[in-house]
């Protein structure tokens, strides 16, 4: 199809541009020059060494892991409750409650961060890693709810009825039938919310009370030319890690859809 070929070429170029920065990133991370400019001068891994030797960075890494693991756990747990309730039961006010849970998707992050900041200041709560987690759960929950809703939706209600019919209780039905079948969705939700949290900058910067996390470390480093090459090395590793997690998440999501006997209708959103 002639028309299809033109569109295909366009789409491929579009994808290349989309990936441009991510492709350029490792080029400079392995480039033996202190300034980030073409032409490239030579191959080196010294930026990676420099990066790994940085004590501040190691501290930021540990903090980020604490924040992201907590966020992923909390957001996924709350997401399971919301998605299960919305998919399985009908109750008055569902539109408003589910809509409110999804609101952070369309609110600029600065508004979310500042509103939370005001509340925390007013309540006299000290800013810390914990307050970052509070904010991250809020912005990660919509994604968890979206992924888990589709996982619960692809679950045939008669499977649960069949288990009840065969003598199981409500809880053992959930454990034996529902949980195993939505487990891929739960894993996908965990990985996605983890990724959102580890990459998030604004909330981490303003609600962290000066505790260093990776995204803030990267932001700060980029403002000083001398620290740019090591931070490119860090960025390369972060991006590679994100893509790895996403690929795993997508694998689980698809397996979940296939397992529950549903039809694959698209990506995460």
């Amino acid at each position: 199809m002639k028309q299809g070929l033109g569109l295909r070429t366009y789409t491929v170029i579009y994808l290349l541009v989309l990936y441009g920065p991510i492709i350029i990133l490792p080029l400079f991370a392995f480039n033996d020059a202190t300034t980030v400019a073409f032409p490239l001068s030579g191959f080196t891994t010294k930026w990676f060494g420099q990066m790994l030797a940085d004590a501040n960075l190691r501290k930021a890494l540990v903090n980020s892991l604490i924040v992201s693991l907590s966020t992923a756990t909390l957001a996924t747990t709350l997401g399971i409750l919301a998605a299960r309730s919305a998919v399985r039961y009908s109750w008055p006010g569902k539109g408003i409650v589910m809509g409110s849970i999804m609101v952070p998707l369309v609110l600029p992050e600065m508004i979310v961060a500042m509103a939370l900041l005001v509340l925390l200041l007013a309540a006299g709560i000290k800013l810390s890693l914990f307050t970052i987690i509070l904010g991250h759960v809020l912005i990660a929950m919509p994604f968890a709810v979206a992924i888990l809703s589709s996982a619960f939706q692809s679950l045939d209600k008669s499977l649960e009825e069949a288990a009840l019919d065969l003598g199981e209780t409500g809880w053992s039905t959930f454990r034996l039938i529902v949980l195993p079948l939505v487990m891929p969705g739960i894993l996908a939700s965990f990985l996605i919310t983890f990724t959102i949290s580890i990459d998030e900058f604004i909330i981490a910067n303003f609600l962290g009370g000066g505790e260093p996390v990776l995204s803030v470390f990267v932001f700060t480093a980029f403002r000083f030319p001398s620290t740019v090459p090591p931070v490119l090395a860090l960025g390369t590793m972060l991006v590679a890690f994100s893509i790895l997690l996403l690929t795993i998440a997508e694998y689980f999501r698809r397996r979940g859809v296939a397992k529950a006997g549903g039809k694959d209708t698209g990506g995460f959103l």
């Binding site: 045939d156 008669s158 499977l159 009825e161 069949a162 288990a163 039938i177 079948l181 397992k259 529950a260 006997g261």
Partner: peptide, 8 residues
């Protein structure tokens, strides 16, 4: 069940 509800 109409859909048979076989646990996949």
């Amino acid at each position: 069940f109409q859909s048979y509800a076989i646990f996949p």
